[in-house]
């Protein structure tokens, strides 16, 4: 693919804009750590359009940049752990090819939260964090499913656009 760098740049910009929109949205769940994760739209698209390598690069850069722009250093560490784990799991699932897009995304959402919980456990070293696991698992599942539905609807169109631009 000749314009890979350009597409990756576009996807990164897309991810950052989505993160910004999420900060702006007055959609508070009341549970800290639970959010839509709109920016994972870009990562999931990247996984389906390119390979694991590009998606991993995108999610790491995304995590660092959104942390610097909208959060703090803690947030970067948490996002990095979540992003890397969820990216890996989704890549494996896509490679195996047994699942639909929303389910791949749902597992990505779950693993994103699992990664963050691991870091949280390492920071505060208490089993008290266990109370939080079921809530975050379910939350990741639901938000992941939603994001995955959007991606599965958008994917054919994005693929068509890229194919057309390749031919020119």
């Amino acid at each position: 693919m000749k314009n890979k760098a350009a597409y990756l740049g576009l996807l990164l910009a897309f991810a950052l804009i989505l993160s910004y929109i999420e900060v702006l949205l007055p959609l508070q769940t009341g549970i800290p750590g639970v959010k839509l994760g709109l920016a994972n739209l870009a990562v999931l698209l990247c996984l389906y359009l390119f390979t694991v390598k590009e998606a991993m690069l995108l999610s790491v850069v995304k995590a660092v940049l959104t942390g610097l722009l909208f959060g703090n250093l803690y947030m970067i560490i948490y996002s990095l752990a979540g992003a890397v784990l969820s990216c890996l799991v989704m890549a494996v699932m896509i490679r195996l090819g047994k699942w639909h897009v929303p389910v791949v995304s749902a597992m990505g959402g779950v693993m994103h939260n699992v990664g963050q919980l691991i870091i949280a456990y390492m920071t505060i070293q208490t089993y008290g964090i266990l109370y939080y696991v079921p809530i975050l698992l379910i939350a990741g599942l639901i938000t992941g499913l939603l994001i995955g539905m959007i991606v599965s609807l958008a994917l054919p169109y994005v693929k068509k656009v890229i194919e057309r631009s390749e031919r020119v």
Partner: peptide, 22 residues
């Protein structure tokens, strides 16, 4: 149909883990 089956299996796995921990 096979794909749907795999979907259901993995989602129910997550739900079961969550319910168990709960």
């Amino acid at each position: 149909i096979k794909k749907v089956k795999a979907d259901v299996i993995i989602i129910s796995c997550v739900l079961m883990v969550a319910a168990l921990l709960f």
